[in-house]
Amino acid sequence: MKEILDRVVIRSTVKQSIPVLLVALLLGILAGQILNLASSIIIIPFVLFSIPVVNGIGGNLGTILGARLSSELHLGSISPRLEGDDLEDELLTGVTLGIITYVSLAFVSMIVAPVLGVQMPINLVKLGVLIAFSGILLSFVVLAISMLSAVYSFRFGLDPDNSVAPLTASSGDIAGIMCIILVLQVVGV
């Protein structure tokens, strides 16, 4: 009996996870090729250092907003027509949260990264500017993605609790890398 149960558990998990994982894999390779094509400005210690910081926080920010929007859609305090004061409040709160988090982490990075021995640009401020600006830019993108995926999932009858997190996480990674490249074009390496 136990063996049958275990086999059923394994088979259904594998079957249900593979499509989502394959999509995540392909989006990941796309993100990887963008890094590869921009390798002349990406493979530099302080830029590499910034990537997990910017992308990690971006993903969490999107997940938090996505989860809150899903609950409010279920509860009916936000209408699926993309309107209402509550939606505006959520977005404003999300952007504020993004700005505060990225600016404070940018300052911490400027202290922590050189101490930990990451090879720094000649001008340390560049690291701070890169993390703060690409992060804030990414906050807007990620919040837009999670808002649209929450609202559209709900309209198409999908439960946003299941769809928002994976959608935001994989597209957020690509968006994060683009934001970093964009800011690097302006600030220079």
Partner: peptide, 30 residues
């Protein structure tokens, strides 16, 4: 974010390997 800085520290230390092994960086996000 502090945890991600540790990840960043490892990633930042890989620069020579990423330069010497072309295409390796493609694997990392996935």
């Amino acid at each position: 974010g502090l945890g991600q800085m540790i990840a960043g520290l490892i990633f930042g230390g890989m620069d020579n390997y990423l330069n010497e092994a072309p295409g390796l960086i493609v694997l990392i996000p996935s």
